[in-house]
Amino acid sequence: MANGSTKYLYLAIFENQGYIRYVFFSLGLILYCAILIFNVIILLVICVEKALHQPMYLLISCLSLNSLYGTAGFFPRFLTDLISELHTISVLACHIQTFVIYTYASCEFTMLTLMAYDRYVAICKPLHYHSIITLEVLFKMIIAAWVYPISCIGLPVYLTTQLPLCDDKITKLYCNGWSIVELSCGDKTPILIVSFIISVTTLVLPMALIFYSYIRILIICQRGSPEFKVKAFHTCLPHIVTFVIFSITIFCEMVLSRYEPGELPLFVTVILSLEFLLIPPVLNPLLYGFSFLEIRKKISCLLTKCLILRKFGK
């Protein structure tokens, strides 16, 4: 193949799947519908109910919005490839998918960082909470939590688009930066250096800030009463579970990217590569929906209203 002449890339992992691909398509479609329904319900309830227009709930809605954004960059293409006879994707579309999936992962960490800071202020500085976390400040932090990762991820993705591609076969279920870089026959050193720096600033730094927030929370809780500890634990537990699960799934994806095709069984490769796109978008709305009484009540009221309207509509 001529240097840099590649216009389409081939997703080789979808070949020779036989009829089992229809099983995967059905499971994937069900899962994607569940992700859409769960996260849209959370968004609707928090947006409609004025009582939930508080920093903690607005940040939860941002997590659901980010889940919808990230899965929209993966599932439609994935489901199409499962039932299609052709498994090619244009280089431009591949770079766009890479950008969406990477910014989804990075924004998840920045949003979790804001949630950790919100819990830190609420527990460690409760008397000053409403003066520190105002809606104006919150909206500015949310905008920064979106703009910062998008700006950072945009640079390595742009540099990747400048690399000449000398092969057209991707051995993953979706496009990512490392897979595209491996197809290049140009100088990879600049993009590898930039990618390392971006990984530190968009992944490691938010994780460090989250750990710092919870260390301070633990110190304060040690001085509090048993009732205070129980209340703090209840408000922090969903966030801790979300953070731990997402960190584990991202770690699995990063480790998997270092393996050569065929070194791991196909089933293991598929599961590890999709964890961060499947588990958090499903688990987060369920976790927050069941953990917080106010959200649970509002969801129940919303569903009750829908059933009543449907009944009288008939």
Rank of each mutant, 00 (worst) to 15 (best):
I133N: 15
I133Q: 12
I133P: 08
L135E: 11
L135R: 12
L135N: 10
L135F: 13
E136W: 15
V137G: 10
V137I: 15
L138Q: 08
F139E: 15
F139A: 15
I142A: 05
I143P: 07
I143S: 12
I143N: 06
I143C: 12
A144G: 09
A144E: 01
A144V: 10
A144T: 09
A144Y: 07
A145R: 13
A145T: 10
A145Y: 12
V147H: 05
Y148L: 11
Y148N: 08
Y148R: 06
P149Y: 00
P149A: 06
P149G: 00
I150M: 07
S151H: 07
S151Q: 11
I153S: 01
G154Q: 02
G154M: 00
L155I: 08
L155N: 04
L155C: 03
P156K: 03
P156V: 11
Y158D: 08
L159T: 02
L159V: 01
L159G: 04
T160C: 09
T160Y: 13
T161D: 03
T161I: 11
Q162F: 03
Q162L: 09
Q162P: 06
L165N: 01
L165M: 06
C166I: 09
C166V: 01
D167G: 15
D167C: 01
D167N: 13
D168V: 06
D168N: 14
K169Q: 07
K169E: 05
I170D: 09
T171S: 08
K172P: 09
K172R: 13
L173G: 12
L173N: 08
L173S: 08
Y174E: 06
Y174D: 01
C175S: 13
C175V: 04
N176Y: 07
N176S: 11
W178P: 00
W178N: 04
W178F: 00
S179V: 13
S179R: 09
S179Y: 02
I180G: 14
I180A: 08
I180L: 15
V181D: 01
S184L: 00
S184W: 00
S184V: 01
S184G: 06
C185L: 06
G186Q: 10
D187W: 13
K188N: 04
K188A: 03
T189E: 13
P190W: 00
I191E: 03
I191C: 05
I191W: 11
I191T: 05
L192Y: 12
L192K: 14
L192I: 10
I193K: 11
V194A: 05
S195L: 05
